[in-house]
Simulated scan of single mutants.
Amino acid sequence: HQGHHHHFICTSCGMTKNIEMCPMDFFEEQLTGCEIDSHRFEIFGKCENCVKN
């Protein structure tokens, strides 16, 4: 899974953060025998600054 990353996206200000860990490492364990072509993983919510304000 080199060369790709996943994102947290703030729904209030639009700020994005890279997520270094890839959740596919977990899901692949449950998909034995499957051939995975691609995937995306995005988390939506409010960033630290928007939560404070």
Rank of each mutant, 00 (worst) to 15 (best):
F26W: 10
E29G: 12
F44C: 02
N53K: 10
G14E: 08
S38F: 07
F41E: 03
K52T: 13
E48V: 00
H7Q: 13
C10W: 00
F41R: 00
T16K: 05
F41H: 02
N53R: 09
M24T: 04
C13H: 06
H39N: 11
H1W: 07
I43M: 10
P23M: 06
C22W: 01
G33M: 06
N18F: 09
F27V: 07
D25F: 06
Q2Y: 12
F27G: 00
G14Q: 06
F8N: 00
C13T: 09
E20I: 15
Q30T: 08
S12R: 04
K52G: 05
R40K: 12
F41N: 00
K52W: 06
M15A: 05
E35L: 13
H4M: 15
D37W: 05
M24G: 02
F27W: 12
E29K: 14
L31V: 01
Q2K: 14
M24L: 14
K17V: 09
D25E: 10
Q2M: 15
C10A: 05
F44I: 00
G14D: 10
M21T: 14
G33W: 08
I36Q: 03
E35K: 12
L31A: 10
C10M: 03
F8W: 05
H6C: 02
V51F: 05
E29A: 11
L31N: 09
T32E: 11
V51G: 01
C34W: 13
H6E: 05
H6D: 02
N18K: 11
E20N: 14
S12W: 03
N53E: 13
K17L: 15
E35A: 15
Q2A: 15
S38L: 04
M15G: 02
H4L: 15
F8R: 01
N49A: 15
F44S: 03
C50A: 10
H7W: 12
C47S: 05
F41Y: 11
M21Y: 12
P23Y: 04
H6I: 00
C47G: 02
C50L: 09
E28T: 08
F26N: 13
E48A: 01
P23C: 08
G33P: 09
E35G: 12
H6T: 05
H39A: 08
H1I: 08
C50I: 07
E20T: 15
G3P: 06
R40M: 11
V51S: 03
G14T: 07
K52C: 10
M21R: 07
P23W: 03
E29Y: 13
H6F: 03
N49V: 14
G14Y: 07
P23L: 06
N53V: 09
G45V: 01
L31G: 02
G3F: 04
S12F: 10
D25L: 05
G14M: 07
I36P: 04
I36M: 10
E35M: 14
M15D: 02
N53F: 11
G45F: 01
F27R: 02
N49I: 12
H5F: 12
H6R: 07
H1N: 13
D37S: 08
C10S: 03
N18S: 12
F27M: 10
H5I: 10
G33D: 15
F44M: 04
I19V: 15
E29T: 13
F8S: 01
G14I: 07
K46E: 07
N49C: 11
N49Y: 10
P23F: 07
I43S: 08
G14L: 07
N53D: 13
